[in-house]
Computed example of a mutant assay.
Amino acid sequence: MKAAVVREHGGSDKLNFETDFPDPIPREGDVIVAVKASSLNHHDVFTRRGMPGIKIPMPAIMGLDVAGEIAEVGPRVIGWKKGDRVLVDPINRVEGGLLGETVHGGLAELCRVPAHQLIRVPDGVSFPDAAGLPVAYGTALRMMNTIGQVANGERVLILGASGGVGVCCLQLAKLAGAHVVACAGTDAKAKRLMEIGADKTINYTTHDFKEEIYKMYGKPTRRGTDRGVDVVVNYTGGDTWVKSLKVLKVGGRMLTCGATAGFDPKEDIRYIWTFELKVMGSNSWARSDIEKLLELVEVGKLKVIVDKVFPLKEAREALRVLEDRESFGKVVVAP
């Protein structure tokens, strides 16, 4: 089969298109999925580069998010048949492991998956839209709803709002009735964020988001409980961390699910105790989160923002676009 393969860790040149990679063979309980779409995530960048403490079997086929049709059903599989439209929950919640990391993923024509990881895709949801959901949108749903409990009337600041997680966080916050300030690195991305529902935007390359929030809502004080924002969504880390603490009002919440700009930022815990802040971590998603997302997309309450769809032979370029932050929303590869 054709596949985009990593045979050693390193830069973008380590992801190569191959035309004769061995086809997967179903084991007991497995199905073979003919991949129709696989969306990329920053996790794929980390997998290609190599992650400290995580052993990646080589050769590796990345792509955590996989949507397609069942091409073959293995022994003892019940309830599924050839041709069924499916989305894969990337986490193997029975044996362990992660699709596109410890086992071969979606950057290939075919993908072997245990049947218990399959989720049925409604006819009204396209394969690129379905593939955009598990990692980014699933993470956003858990962070905003289950953990953060963003509510009507709250002020929410979203950093990195133009990425896959960010555009979903924005939409979920608006569905909850919140007032959203979205940050992006270009005026063009800021404009698109307004188009999908942001109330205000900040270009963080030309403006200090902390100072801009102070202008909009005032500098938080112990006595002025209506100054600042209720929630900051920060999965960038790095030099944005302390600034994020400084814009939260008394009792405010910092929500985080990652650290794309650095996991060990400078800290200032004085703000945490002085303003009684809550720093709330959120990790991955539940299967029910993916099912809920499919329902929201099917009825039109949630839009999957797909920026670009690349053919499989251009998977290296697709990952580069994501890595260099040139995309808005999701980047999808369609074999």
Rank of each mutant, 00 (worst) to 15 (best):
M1P: 05
M1Q: 08
K2S: 07
G11H: 13
S12H: 06
S12W: 06
N16R: 15
T19V: 15
D20E: 12
P22L: 10
D23H: 04
P24C: 09
I25T: 15
P26M: 10
R27L: 11
D30H: 06
V33H: 04
V35A: 00
V35T: 02
A37R: 00
L40D: 00
H43L: 15
V45I: 15
F46C: 03
R49K: 14
P52V: 14
M58L: 15
L64I: 03
V66H: 03
E69A: 14
A71L: 15
V77Y: 05
G79K: 08
G79Q: 07
W80G: 07
V88I: 15
N92G: 04
E95N: 11
G96L: 09
G96E: 10
L98E: 09
L99H: 06
L99E: 04
T102K: 07
V103T: 07
V103I: 11
G105V: 03
G105M: 01
G106N: 04
E109T: 05
E109N: 09
E109A: 08
L110Y: 03
L110T: 05
A115N: 09
I119S: 02
V121P: 02
P122Y: 13
S126A: 06
D129L: 12
D129K: 08
V135H: 12
A136N: 13
L141V: 01
M143L: 15
G153T: 12
G153M: 12
R155W: 09
C168D: 04
Q171D: 09
K174E: 03
L175W: 05
V181G: 04
A184W: 00
G185L: 11
G185V: 12
A190L: 07
A190T: 14
K191C: 09
M194R: 12
M194C: 09
E195Q: 13
I196F: 09
A198R: 01
T201H: 07
T205I: 10
T205C: 10
D208W: 12
G218I: 15
P220M: 11
R222G: 04
R222Y: 13
T225G: 08
V231A: 03
T236K: 02
T240Y: 06
V242N: 07
S244R: 04
K246R: 13
M254Q: 07
C257Y: 00
C257V: 08
T260A: 14
G262V: 06
P265M: 11
E267V: 13
E267H: 06
I269S: 11
R270A: 11
E276I: 13
K278Y: 11
M280H: 02
S282Q: 06
L294P: 00
L296P: 02
V297K: 00
E298C: 06
G300P: 01
G300W: 15
I305G: 00
K308L: 10
V309S: 04
E314W: 05
E317P: 03
E317W: 10
A318E: 00
R320W: 08
R320N: 12
L322D: 00
L322Y: 01
E323W: 03
E323G: 04
S327L: 05
